[in-house]
Design a binder for these strands. Sequence first.
DNA 1: ATGTAATAGTTGTCTTTGTAACCAATAGGC
DNA 2: GCCTATTGGTTACAAAGACAACTATTACAT
Lengths: 146, 146
Amino acid sequence: MRDDPDFDVEDFLPYLLNQAAEASSLEFQRVYNDRYGMLRNEWRVLFHLGIYGRMTASDIGARAQMHKTKISRAVQRLAERRYLIRQRDETDRRVEHLELTPTGQKVYADLRNVARDYNDALVEGLADADVARLRSVLRALAKRRG
Amino acid sequence: MRDDPDFDVEDFLPYLLNQAAEASSLEFQRVYNDRYGMLRNEWRVLFHLGIYGRMTASDIGARAQMHKTKISRAVQRLAERRYLIRQRDETDRRVEHLELTPTGQKVYADLRNVARDYNDALVEGLADADVARLRSVLRALAKRRG
DNA sequence: ATGTAATAGTTGTCTTTGTAACCAATAGGC
DNA sequence: GCCTATTGGTTACAAAGACAACTATTACAT
């Protein structure tokens, strides 16, 4: 195996991605936390339901790459706050359908707008083509299963 | 405020970055975990000491954007395993200098090589120019303080 | 139909993190 | 010098996460 002392952490993509991800989500995290006392997982679940409408915990898990226990707990807290309602599927009683309440939808709409503005600010100064390329690379990396 | 139902999570950069970061570090995480029982923070500290040599906890914190408690605990565990030694600064006795032991350096060299290979695999199929651009965008995003 | 496996979701336990409070030592103002 | 503020680092406790084990229900093979 070649031995390469010149390889720096700062070149290491997972590290760079992590730093970028953390720094770029900090500010937004404060918004959903301060305004609605939500945690990241709760925000994620809310967002998915807001965009895709009625869906099950498993659906969210598959889309968001979130473990089912995280979803279970996030759903619990969102239900307590009356941001969503749970409905048993009557043909398969293991399944629970989740849907935002009107309150939940208001919260979602608010946060979605903040997210959009925040996103605009993040990519400000970058060419559209570069942003598109960035997104596609990130999607490719995200798809890669460890 | 404009109301934009078309804005999707999948367009949201912090989300994409997180997904990419998580997916792309999974495999590597397993390596340092399985081989050396190390956690991410420990790996980060080890890596910094490996690359930059003797430095203090604060130095690492400043470079890696890591909170001092994370560093404190990581250093503790690395010291227990004799991967590093701590030396009080005699002119300012608050400060502690950290340095890898020969064992620590071996571990570092091993993981650095794995990281390099892993990184190569990650960017495989991407043009060098694209990778360079990606890095620079990520660095810019990481610098942004929330 | 009946026993085994699979699936949806929850709970329990242990580990890891976050935050704030805390020492100890130095720096700075007066 | 002396009092207060700052800095480097650790510790304590609560919150969040990982992971396996669990319940309930359905699917599937024979």
